[in-house]
Deep mutational scan, measured.
Amino acid sequence: MTYKLISNGKTLKGETTTEAVDAATAEKVFKQYANDNGVDGEWTYDDATKTFTVTE
């Protein structure tokens, strides 16, 4: 399945996607992506749209 990340960081804003077997796997990928880009904030997940959002 395709999962989307919306980043509302102070230094990184935008969207990216990943293919993953489940939401937990996608979350690990996205949290590593955010960490690699210096984004640390509040996370939410919408199962209906398969979208994670991180806001700093």
Rank of each mutant, 00 (worst) to 15 (best):
S7K: 04
Y33H: 04
K13I: 13
T18F: 11
V54K: 01
D46W: 03
F52I: 01
L5G: 03
A48C: 10
E27D: 04
E15G: 06
G14N: 11
T51L: 03
K31E: 04
G9C: 14
D36C: 11
T51D: 00
D36L: 11
T18G: 02
N37H: 15
T49V: 05
V21M: 12
D40K: 14
A34Y: 06
K50M: 09
A26P: 00
K4M: 08
K10T: 14
D22P: 00
A26C: 01
A20D: 02
A23V: 11
V29P: 00
A24R: 09
F52K: 00
D40C: 12
V54M: 06
E56G: 06
E42A: 09
K10F: 12
A34E: 01
D22H: 03
A20E: 04
A48K: 11
T55N: 10
K28F: 08
I6A: 05
E15Y: 13
E27M: 14
L12H: 12
F30R: 00
F30D: 01
V21Q: 12
A23E: 07
V29N: 06
Y45G: 00
L5Y: 03
T51I: 06
N8Q: 10
I6T: 05
A48T: 12
T55K: 06
D22C: 05
E19F: 15
Y45H: 00
M1S: 13
D46S: 05
V29G: 03
I6Y: 06
W43E: 00
F52R: 00
Y3R: 00
D22A: 03
A26F: 00
D36E: 13
T53Q: 05
G38Y: 06
T55D: 06
G41I: 03
Q32Y: 04
Y3I: 02
T18C: 15
D40Y: 15
M1K: 11
T53N: 04
V39I: 15
Y45L: 02
W43V: 02
G38S: 06
K13M: 11
D47V: 09
A20G: 03
T25V: 06
V21P: 15
T16F: 15
Y3G: 03
V54P: 01
D22V: 02
D46E: 06
T25N: 07
T49Y: 04
N37Y: 11
K10D: 10
T18A: 08
A26N: 01
D36S: 09
T44P: 00
W43Q: 01
D47T: 07
T11M: 10
G9D: 05
A26G: 01
W43C: 02
A23Q: 11
E56V: 11
T53F: 12
T2A: 05
T17Y: 15
T49L: 07
N8P: 05
N37Q: 11
M1C: 14
S7E: 04
T18H: 06
G41V: 04
V39Y: 07
T55R: 06
T16E: 06
A34R: 01
D47S: 13
T53K: 06
E42G: 05
M1L: 11
A26Q: 00
A20Y: 02
A34K: 00
E15Q: 09
A23Y: 12
W43T: 00
A48E: 13
T17K: 07
Y45A: 00
E27T: 03
D40M: 14
V21R: 12
E27N: 04
G38C: 08
Y45Q: 01
D36I: 10
Y3Q: 02
V39F: 11
